[in-house]
């Protein structure tokens, strides 16, 4: 899929972020075009998850702007950002453990008012995720980790987002489910969803992404097409462990 030539769907410009005295981001710049899968790679404490929180308005940057579809969304409350069309698959899934699978799915469409379209999307999700259909009235907390990840993704899709932010979607999953989740991400991307994902597992992420950024100690140290990054000797050394 080619990046369109127009303005990016999501753009982070000169972002500086800090938790108290500890600065997390230093002049962060990145963008995501409509239709892309873009991954943000980096080790522990490199500032990956905080990037997600900045986009979703859960953490306010000290400086810089987040643009969504050309509009500055920095400083907006999270619910409003979600309503503008940014869906989230949070780190560690964050399923509502005491609510049923059905309720979890419909919570994903909480900010929408179009009842009929919601019902259609709901049916689509059940077709897409037969596993969830079997467990509709079970509590979210009783699902396996992989099933919860599926539910989290389906829940995000229920919001009809124009951009889905995924924070470490393969974390803690069995190898079988890692492959399933990656295939699923490619599948929904093919349906037209734009995806920005944060991953620690660079090798896996670059297999499905179009482009990638490498974050190190709060700075973007490398960016490029997924293929270029996969072939980069430095990346192979630092993140892919090919030389070990």
């Amino acid at each position: 899929m080619n990046a369109s030539n127009g303005q990016p769907l999501l753009q982070l410009k000169n972002i500086d972020t800090a938790y108290g005295p500890i600065q997390v981001h230093f002049d962060l710049n990145l963008h995501v075009h409509a239709g892309e899968i873009v991954c943000l790679l980096g080790g522990n404490a490199s500032g990956k998850s905080t990037t997600m929180k900045v986009i979703l308005g859960l953490v306010q940057p000290l400086r810089g702007t987040v643009l969504f579809d050309g509009r500055a969304i920095t400083g907006l409350p999270t619910p409003q950002i979600v309503r503008l069309g940014i869906g989230s698959v949070p780190e560690a899934r964050r399923i509502f453990a005491q609510m049923t699978v059905r309720e979890n799915l419909l919570m994903g469409a909480y900010h929408r008012k179009d009842r009929r379209a919601i019902a259609e999307d709901y049916e689509r999700m059940l077709a897409l995720f037969p596993r969830l259909k079997e467990r509709l009235h079970q509590r979210g907390g009783t699902l396996s980790g992989g099933e919860q990840q599926m539910l989290a993704i389906a829940r995000a899709l229920m919001g009809r987002p124009r951009l889905i932010c995924m924070d470490e979607p393969t974390m803690g999953l069995s190898p079988l489910y890692v492959d399933r989740v990656l295939a699923l991400i490619q599948q929904i991307n093919a349906q037209g969803y734009t995806i920005f994902m944060v991953e620690q597992n660079a090798h896996l992420a670059l297999q499905i992404a179009h482009r990638g950024y490498v974050l190190q100690n709060g700075r973007i140290v490398m960016e490029g097409s997924a293929q270029a990054l996969l072939n980069d000797p430095e990346i192979q050394d630092a993140y892919l462990g090919e030389k070990q």
Partner: peptide, 19 residues
């Protein structure tokens, strides 16, 4: 639902668009 979601996971509820 919004109430229950908030009680179970405030931050996740926010990300569903719950005020």
């Amino acid at each position: 639902w919004a109430l229950r979601a908030t009680a179970q996971d405030r931050e996740a509820a926010l990300q569903m668009g719950v005020n």
